[in-house]
Design a protein around this nucleic acid. Structure first.
Length: 892
RNA sequence: GGACGAUUAGCUCAGUUGGUUAGAGCACUUCUCUUACAAAGAAGGGGUCACUGGUUCGAGUCCAGUAUCGUCCACCA
């Protein structure tokens, strides 16, 4: 094939869908088809299931790019690589989206529509978005095992959730209890703490007394709740009120009898209002806690629809706003209000409908996190979940999230898992009119107490995190694959999984719950590593959102620049846990790079047409340039592999880019042009390209696979073996005469030429390239090498050989020498200037060294090894100087 | 209020256990349409590593404090 036969511009659109189809049909996304030895290690990742509420955004794309990189890397390294796809039903979020949609289209509420009809609509919506999401996921090139696809609300997961609920109930972990919850009066549902948002609002702060002779004035923004006050809390340090602590008062507040106890609580701020807080246990989170601590009565004032309960005289049945206005009027009449001021406070609102949250006590299902569990050796879920992170059974990348996780876990409270919504997992609890409640996998035939068959199932649904918390094992066949404490099937082969790749914003919401649930269900951790990617923000560092209109649609970008470019721009320059800025320009830039790789390949393919690149390379035929690129390749493989192992994806990518552009394209390809059609060179070109494509594959799978097909490969790049440095090392290791730095030398010559070109007034490019690489003049490289050797002898042993660590430093000093030689050939005067500058530098360096070595402290305290090194450096530098001076003399 | 980060070139960021003169990409300047690539190539300019102290022979790197910005959590009576 010649380069002419391939277009100079790579067109992703023509390639990507075709390639993805080939991959998918090959079956290799499923590790069962990989033909691996039975002892092959597994590497499993479960994909965080995206909510089916909307199409994917760039955050998802980043997640897919990183996940796919990890899984492709492991697959090529011979692991049983499994990546499980799925979607999340996102109970409350989905219900709200659909509810809004229906209301906008027909003006109907879900109640008007009825549960059955409404759920039908939800499923219709769900199918639609699910299809979109799965399409987008494929477009990203994700090598997911679609045969194991799951949905958090499909039949298999329903079974698992029911089983889990029953198991937890029987172990006493799940209980029903009354607690203060965030209630949305519009959604008619509780909200988890993290579903509550806050909004600043201007409001009035009233300072008043309950009645005339009540000793303390209190401040409130919600006078209507004061009908249910049972205490006044003050700061224990507050001198003004100390004397009242423990006292009880009884009196009449707006026609209602109240018993008020004065309690002390550190949470009370002395500076706010009067420094005294009216405690309404039923309608404030903090008050509830105080009530628990002080054994206070709980009086419910507000009902589920936001109206005042019966029993509060004329206020009953009024809405909170009406009641508030009326109470203010009444208080004013009685002259109890002492102050009225405008303040800005933080209002809790529903994250879906922005309605103000009404905290109120309600009967809910909870997961107890502090209760000792028998099968966890009488440790609580919380204790176990903390333990596995503390002892590093689960490792977080980056490590700082271990602290965040632990901090959060330690403050964890019981988890409310019931939601008053229609869409979601049903709760396997059944109630009888006689008051009996039964928790059971199947609907019980009759009530065990009264034999009644009239049982009704709990109407609530489960928090979506309850089902997604089981994701690592519910996707691997739990509970069927877990009998008598023994794992079987997929669960045995793939659990615990190796990696969870997710956004750090759901570390607490999801990750912690997965850990607790896995520990409970199968007694093991769900994953060994958690890689937390950052948030994708726009180029100004702002969060991307629909309302701001600064979002970038991944599909648009793929359409415009190709998937590989999008993937690269998401992988490069991103470090775990840190937010990443992304702009269209960045994607465009990587599109250019992908095209560059394409063109490099075109060139190589045209050169290798006649050569059989499967032939072995004969070492004796190698030139310096060959050895240099081979050694570079060897280092590249080592470096990239190590970086990928430790999740430094961006660093690995940079190394690859550096090699591809600077070493391979800019220099070796140029050399190849001048060295003509040497068969050996073409074989090397081909072999390098092949390994380079393998190394790039996890980053940019499409273009590499496409080029791969042009190389007459017998199998897909997808399942090729990861390159090894040894293969390259073998080629050159046999050469006894090969100095450890022979390749670096070639590079140095190249550097010298570059410097020369920069300084010389002659038109250098072609001429110099010719001098170095072409025909007879190529001998000059060898001459240069002899010169280097001479220099080395005269300078003595170089640091590289002694320290073996920092060759570049030592070599830096001999660059001057090489340059002398080459430049001498062309322009002695220019050289003179150069060498003088060089000398100056060296002298500066030398004096620095001398200064350091004359420092007594240094001699005394620095390790002997360092001192010796420094001495040696000085010696070298001095020798170099004298060498250079000699050269300078010769020049003149 | 609690926890955790960040601050390095005009911009976006690397900098791998402390080690000689701190790097890349973009942008900028100059040159080149040289046959894989103008979606390109070559060369160049640009930095008091936020600030102040400390540890050390040696600090962008470790410690403490300050400032600014950010994220998460709690919470606003």
């Amino acid at each position: 094939m010649t380069a002419k036969e391939l277009p100079a511009i790579y067109e992703p659109k023509k390639v990507e869908d075709k390639i993805y189809k080939i991959w998918e049909e090959s079956g290799f996304f499923n590790p069962d088809n990989l033909n691996l030895p039975s002892d092959a290690k597994s590497y499993t990742i479960v994909l965080p299931p995206p909510n089916i509420t909307a199409k994917l955004h760039l955050g998802h794309s980043a997640m897919l790019a990183i996940g796919d990189l990890m899984i492709r890397f492991r697959r090529m390294r011979g692991y049983r690589a499994l990546w499980i796809p799925g979607t999340d039903h996102a109970a409350i979020a989905t219900q709200n989206v659909v509810e809004k949609k229906i209301f906008n289209e027909s003006g109907l509420t879900r109640h008007a529509l009825g549960k059955e009809e409404f759920l039908k609509k939800v499923w219709e919506f769900l199918k639609e978005t699910q299809t979109t999401i799965l399409h987008q996921t494929r477009k990203m090139g994700s090598s997911l095992d679609w045969s194991r696809e799951a949905f958090t609300l499909d039949d298999q997961r329903k079974k698992a959730v029911t089983q889990m609920f029953v198991d937890m109930y029987e172990a006493g972990v799940i209980y029903q209890g009354e607690r203060i919850v965030n209630w949305c009066p519009r959604c008619q549902s509780t909200l988890a703490d993290d579903e509550v948002e806050h909004q600043h609002q201007e409001t009035k702060l009233y300072t008043f007394r309950y009645w005339k002779d009540f000793p303390i004035a209190i401040s409130t923004t919600r006078p209507e709740t004061k009908l249910g006050d049972t205490a006044v809390a003050v700061n224990p340090k507050d001198e003004r009120y100390k004397k009242f602590i423990g006292q009880e008062f009884e009196g009449n507040f707006c026609g209602i009898n109240l018993k008020i106890k004065i309690i002390a609580d550190r949470e009370v701020e002395m500076d706010f209002g009067t420094g005294a807080l009216g405690v309404t246990p039923a309608h404030s989170m903090i008050d509830w806690k105080m009530a628990e601590n002080n054994n206070l009565n709980i009086i419910k004032v507000i009902d589920e629809s936001g109206k005042i309960h019966p029993g509060f005289g004329k206020y009953s049945t009024l809405s909170v706003f009406e009641a508030r206005a009326l109470i203010i009027t009444d208080l004013k009449e009685e002259n109890l209000i002492e102050k009225e001021e405008n303040i800005v406070n933080n209002l809790s609102i529903c994250y879906r409908c922005d309605t103000a949250i009404e905290p109120l006590p309600s009967k809910q299902w909870f997961v107890a996190v502090d209760k000792p569990v028998e099968k966890l050796s009488n440790k609580s879920l919380k204790e176990k979940a903390i333990e596995v992170a503390t002892n590093q059974e689960i490792k977080f990348v980056p490590d700082r999230f271990t602290k965040i996780y632990l901090n959060w876990m330690e403050n964890l409270h019981d988890w409310c898992i019931s939601r008053q919504i229609w869409f979601g997992h049903s709760i396997p609890a059944y109630y009888c009119k006689c008051g009996e409640a039964i928790v059971s996998k199947e609907r019980p035939k009759k009530c065990p107490t009264c034999d009644s068959t009239d049982l009704t199932q709990d109407e609530d649904s489960l928090d979506t995190w309850f089902s997604s918390g089981m994701w690592t094992f519910s996707t691997l066949g739990w509970p069927e694959n877990f009998k008598d404490n023994h794992k079987s099937g997929d669960l045995k082969r793939f659990h615990p999984t190796q990696m969870l790749e997710t956004g750090h914003e759901i570390l607490t919401l999801w990750v912690s719950r997965m850990i607790m649930m896995s520990l409970f269900a199968i007694g093991e951790i769900p994953f060994e590593n958690v890689y937390l990617h950052g948030m994708i923000v726009d180029k100004d560092g702002k969060k991307m959102s629909k309302s701001k209109g600064n979002g970038i649609d991944p599909l648009d970008m793929i359409e415009k620049f190709g998937t590989d470019a999008v993937r690269l721009s998401l992988l490069m320059g991103s470090t775990p846990g840190n937010d990443m800025r992304l702009s269209e320009e960045k994607i465009e830039n990587y599109r250019n790079f992908v095209n560059k790789l394409w063109n490099i390949s075109r060139f190589v393919i045209s050169k290798t047409a006649e050569a059989d690149i499967n032939n072995n390379i004969e070492e004796k035929n190698l030139t310096f340039a060959d050895k240099w690129i081979i050694s570079k390749m060897e280092n590249l493989i080592i470096g990239v592999t190590a970086d990928l192992e430790k999740y430094s994806f961006s660093l690995a990518g940079e190394k690859l880019q550096e090699f591809t552009k600077n070493d391979f394209a800019d220099w070796y390809l140029e050399v190849a042009k001048f060295e003509g059609n040497l068969a050996e060179k073409n074989i090397i070109l081909g072999k390098i390209l092949k390994d380079l494509l393998k190394l790039w594959h996890p980053f940019i799978p499409f273009v590499t696979e496409e080029i791969w097909t042009k190389l007459n490969a017998d199998k897909l790049l997808l399942i090729e073996n990861w390159p090894t440095a040894e293969d390259w090392n073998k080629i050159i290791a046999k050469d006894n005469n090969t100095d450890s730095d022979v390749f670096e030398k070639t590079q140095l010559i190249i550097t010298a030429i570059r410097n020369l070109r920069a300084e010389n007034k002659i038109e250098p490019t072609k001429k110099l390239k010719t001098i170095i690489y072409a025909g007879d003049d190529f001998e000059q490289i060898k001459d240069a090498e002899i010169l280097i050797k001479n220099l080395r002898t005269s300078v003595g042993e170089l640091i590289i050989e002694k320290s073996g660590e920092k060759p570049a430093e030592a070599l830096y000093t001999i660059v001057g020498g090489i340059e002398i030689y080459l430049i001498n050939e062309i322009d002695k005067i220019a050289e003179q200037k150069r060498i003088m500058g060089e000398l100056e530098n060296l002298k500066k360096y030398t004096s620095g060294l001398e200064q350091r070595l004359s420092n007594k402290e240094f001699i005394k305290k620095a390790p002997a090894q360092i001192v010796a090194q420094e001495n040696e450096k000085l010696l070298q530098a001095k020798t170099n100087i004298s060498e250079m001076e000699k050269y300078l003399e010769k020049l003149i």
